[in-house]
């Protein structure tokens, strides 16, 4: 329950922090931290326009998208203190497939509009999330290898960091998780949410036709998803530091904030990759994940 709360807090500050960071770095004054939520609230109150090509799939997709992320969040534990609302062996599989369900619906809802642009976005989203799947699973495998347990809570609880190799491993994993998060959430370097040309968008072009309440849901879900991955990173980093409960909770939020600022930094100083390089980039992540996996062998002294 505590993790759920912390993730909600994280999700609350996340979009605002990113936009503030980006504004400051480009020398602007920047909006308030809750500006994104003000926008979302306005959206939630608005009426909607639907394309006459669409069917009910288009209308239920945002709901299911949100439900899938909420369902996934239920399984995220709070460090080594508190397990998620539901925790069982192999819950991370449920986590991953749950997210995939939401994504499936979003993709077909984009195809439902019958627009060339949205089809293109859907196609790219599908391709990238397919390619990123192995990397995510390899990272998780390495954590499982290291801890010997197969549920989120136990994995993170029994995750011991003893020497510098372990820290190296943690560093790689955190890097990978950050990258995976960015890809999953359609951020730089794979996708730029602020681009204005339909032909170069990925996620944004998928939701071109969504409006009003639906769009609001999608944006909330985006923020939640970000925070959820942030929580995952936090879980990886906090337990080895052996902090107390309160400090850990604080660290959790701090890590979320740092994560958001990092994203802001990256989006300010980095350009989007060329579209054709995206698959290579994502596949490289799998390669790096493999290195992490091998590092585990060193740590557990299997080789």
């Amino acid at each position: 329950m505590i993790s759920l709360l912390l993730i909600f807090i994280g999700a609350l500050i996340f979009p605002g922090l990113i936009s503030i960071t980006k504004a400051k770095l480009s020398g602007k004054k920047g909006p308030g931290i809750f500006q994104p939520y003000k926008d979302i609230l306005r959206l939630l109150k608005k009426g909607s326009v639907y394309s006459s090509t669409t069917s009910f799939v288009f209308q239920v997709a945002p709901i299911i998208y949100m439900a899938s992320v909420l369902g996934a969040i239920l399984m995220i534990p709070f460090g080594n203190f508190k397990q998620g609302l539901i925790s069982f062996e192999g819950d991370f599989l449920m986590f991953a497939y749950m997210l995939a369900f939401g994504k499936f619906l979003m993709i077909i809802s984009a195809l439902d509009t019958g627009s060339g642009f949205e089809g293109m976005g859907a196609n790219r989203e599908a391709l990238y999330s397919m390619l990123v799947e192995p990397a995510f699973f390899i990272v998780l495998s390495s954590v499982v290898m290291l801890s010997g347990y197969t549920s989120f809570y136990e994995m993170f609880t029994h995750f011991h960091v003893e020497n510098y190799v372990s820290w190296l491993y943690v560093a790689i994993s955190v890097y990978l998780l950050i990258q995976i998060t960015l890809i999953e959430n359609s951020r730089l370097p794979v996708d730029d949410p602020k681009t204005h040309l339909e032909l170069t968008m990925v996620h944004e072009v998928m939701v071109l036709d969504n409006s009003g309440f639906d769009l609001g849901l999608i944006q909330i879900t985006g923020a939640l998803k970000f925070a959820m991955f942030g929580a995952l990173i936090g879980n990886l980093v906090i337990p080895p530091m052996h902090l107390g409960f309160e400090l850990s909770a604080l660290a959790f939020v701090v890590i979320q904030a740092l994560f958001a600022i990092t994203v802001g930094f990256m989006e300010s100083f980095r350009a989007r990759l060329k579209m054709i390089y995206n698959p290579q980039f994502i596949l490289t992540l799998s390669g790096i994940a493999l290195i992490a996996f091998f590092a585990v062998f060193f740590i557990t002294k299997t080789i």
């Binding site: 077909i108 195809l111 859907a122 599908a126 390619l131 799947e133 699973f137």
Partner: peptide, 25 residues
């Protein structure tokens, strides 16, 4: 594990295509 994950991802790719193209739009 990796291949199962990849199979899952590819299956999603494939069926979003199949369902989307046949029934939607």
């Amino acid at each position: 594990i990796t291949s199962l994950a990849l199979i899952g991802g590819l299956a999603i790719f494939c069926f979003t295509k199949a369902f989307g193209v046949v029934f939607l739009g």
